[in-house]
């Protein structure tokens, strides 16, 4: 595969956490390209849009560029698979999915250290709600089955109050 990164693709077996909540020991999903955040500019957003699968690399637990990259790709109309790989922690899973990623691919040692439970629960035990939601991937929408807080609040108000004119 064309590769903007070097080391991650060398690994082939690990864990796949999907936005639907599915969690399994699996090979790296088929990806057309791995993108490191530094390389995104040179690659050019438009050159990525036609691809079927793109891997976004996370370089440290402090580096949130790939969240914005995912959102940028989705906003630009990218409709393929977006998979996050690299130095992630379970607490970042919701950030990833809410930013438009479909799955996270995790190395064995990462799952071991954090515990498979922590990864599996990453979408159950954490704050899954947002006030204003970005467009979510399908798996996550089905899973949450709830609109964002502002929407729910307004739905609830609409049920109890006569419809009001907005400004």
């Amino acid at each position: 595969m064309p590769n903007a990164s070097s080391n991650v693709a060398a690994l082939d077996l690990g864990w796949l956490l999907q936005s639907s909540g599915a969690f399994s020991h699996a090979a790296v999903p088929t990806l057309d390209l791995l993108v490191e955040p530094e390389a995104a500019d040179t690659l050019g957003l438009n050159n990525l849009l036609a691809l079927k699968g793109v891997g976004l690399v996370f370089k440290s637990p402090h580096d949130g560029r790939s969240f914005s990259l995912a959102r940028q790709l989705r906003n630009a109309g990218f409709s393929g698979q977006l998979v996050g790989l690299g130095r992630l922690m379970p607490d970042q899973a919701r950030h990833a999915f809410q930013s438009g990623l479909d799955a996270l691919w995790l190395e064995d040692q990462l799952v071991q250290r954090h515990g498979a439970d922590a990864w599996q629960n990453a979408l159950n035990v954490v704050v899954a709600d947002l006030y204003s939601q970005q467009r979510l991937p399908l798996g996550l929408t089905e899973r949450l089955a709830l609109p964002d807080i502002w929407q729910r609040r307004q739905n609830a108000a609409a049920k109890t109050l006569p419809p009001k004119h907005c400004l």
Binding site: G64, F67, R71, Q92, H95, S99, V127, Y131, S132, Q134
Partner: peptide, 13 residues
């Protein structure tokens, strides 16, 4: 406050 609380993209700026 509500918009920025746990904003998915902007917690690791």
């Amino acid at each position: 406050r509500q918009w920025s609380s746990l904003h998915p993209e902007f917690a690791f700026l």
